[in-house]
Design a protein around this nucleic acid. Structure first.
Length: 426
DNA sequence: TCTCCGATTAGAC
DNA sequence: CTAACGGTCTAATCGGAGA
């Protein structure tokens, strides 16, 4: 029996356009019409493109060195990613969206689902959302509305793609035959949850368009592709199976790792790098009020250079008791790096993973090992300073090895929103 | 045979 | 001049080990 309330559900997916690039443009309005891209860590790959850059054929995820010639030819400007800036802009956008409904799921740095069920004149509300976000943050967004998350996502895709929609598309406004014909024109790969591999495999079953997937034989689909796709199909049929998650669940594992700007051969540099990763991972752990009881540390050589000797060691250790103390966990991490390290390899990446994560509240305390209290105060202070003045302001130790592994970021914009000294001169 | 576990796969952004 | 290719996270699934 279908719940009649569910039928009239109105879910919006608000997605920022070309988010990282748009953030950069807020502080560099002179770049409004130039083709620009933002690069991943180490200036490795293109991860955000302005419309002009897309039009010139720059692909998402493309390695920068492949794009370089094209970029020089057409004057495409590349910027190193500035996550402090993007996170800050994201927070502003998300809090504005929150003003339109109490029921919001912040799905990613640039997307939010909003429950708008029961609200009248959705079209006008959607334009108000767009305008308010633009006015208050300078970030352009598109709004897609549908009866399920999957359809809201698809509606957003349509809003982005068709200029006539002016950035807003409501799937619920269509009649049945309009829906059929529209879904028949969109390829399955555009559906949330259907990636490249699945699209390819689906094609061999003659499932090519969204409409094909909607009408596919459910039992076969499930047998061949699993439960996830069955949910997706139901969502396309307007049966909501994926709920709004308004409170972000605590992470079950926390990884902090990074490729280095250069190859690293020195043990102390590796230890230095891992100690910073450990500090970041532990801060995330404390931010969600958790403790971890398993830590894993890994080193990697450069897999893109198969002619060089390869070595990718990885050790995990269970902690005697759960911890979120940077100093404590770093002692283990440091020890593990030393244990795994072998001369004669050029290391390109390292990292730490914290797992077996439990809530701090119901942590088993070991009655024979008191102490701790002093350390948690230290950690609180550390977090406060780093939150106030930026990540990495205070770290556990670094004897200057930093520069030998530091990320390559040759094209970073200033920290406009988090650093006074970066503010443009009046 | 059942269950548990780690590794692998696929997807998102 | 050359070499240069991200980082997190989750859920499902699979195959082997052990009960």
């Amino acid at each position: 029996m279908q719940n009649p309330k569910q039928k009239s559900r109105q879910l919006a997916l608000v997605d920022c356009n070309n988010f990282y690039v748009s953030c950069e443009r807020v502080f560099r309005p002179d770049l409004i019409n130039t083709p620009i891209v933002a690069l991943s860590n180490n200036d490795g790959c293109v991860i955000s493109r302005s419309n002009e850059a897309k039009a010139l054929g720059v692909k998402m995820g493309q390695p920068w060195f492949e794009v370089k010639a094209l970029a020089e030819e057409h004057g495409i400007l590349a910027l190193s990613s500035n996550y402090a800036l993007y996170a800050d802009m994201s927070n502003r956008v998300m809090s504005i969206l929150h003003e339109f409904t109490p029921h919001q799921e912040v799905y990613s740095i640039d997307e939010s689902f909003l429950e708008l069920t029961g609200i009248q004149n959705l079209k006008s509300i959607s334009y108000q959302i767009k305008q308010k976000v633009m006015k208050c943050t300078g970030i352009p967004v598109c709004v897609g509305i549908g009866p399920t998350k999957t359809l809201a996502k698809l509606a957003n895709h349509i809003a982005k793609k068709h200029p006539r929609s002016k950035g807003v598309f409501n799937f619920n406004d269509l009649n049945e035959s309009q829906k059929d014909s529209l879904l028949g024109k969109i390829s399955v790969g555009e559906v949330w949850g259907i990636g490249r591999r699945l699209s390819q495999r689906l094609a061999s079953y003659n499932v090519v368009t969204v409409q094909d997937l909607k009408l596919a034989h459910t039992a076969t689909l499930r047998a061949q592709f699993g439960v996830v796709i069955e949910k997706t199909q139901r969502e396309l049929c307007e049966h909501s199976c994926i709920e709004l998650t308004e409170v972000e669940p605590a992470k079950k594992q926390i990884v902090s790792s990074r490729s280095f700007g250069q190859m690293v051969t020195d043990l102390n540099a590796l230890k230095d790098a891992v100690s910073l990763f450990t500090a970041n991972a532990c801060q995330k752990l404390r931010a969600q009020n958790s403790h971890a009881s398993m830590i894993q540390v890994f080193l990697c050589t450069n897999r893109f250079r198969p002619e060089l000797p390869q070595y990718n060691p990885c050790i995990s250790v269970p902690l005697p008791q759960p911890s979120n103390d940077t100093v404590h966990i770093n002692r283990w991490a440091d020890y593990l790096v030393g244990k795994m390290f072998k001369e004669g390899y050029q290391y390109k990446k390292a990292g730490i993973m914290l797992s077996e994560i439990s809530a701090s509240t119901h942590r088993q305390m070991d009655m024979w090992e008191p102490q701790e209290q002093a350390d948690t105060n230290l950690m609180r202070t550390l977090d406060a300073i780093n939150t106030r003045y930026g990540r990495g302001t205070v770290t556990v130790s670094t004897q200057g090895a930093y520069k030998s592994w530091q990320m390559k970021q040759e094209r970073k914009s200033p920290n406009y929103t988090t650093d006074w000294s970066s503010a443009p001169e009046a």
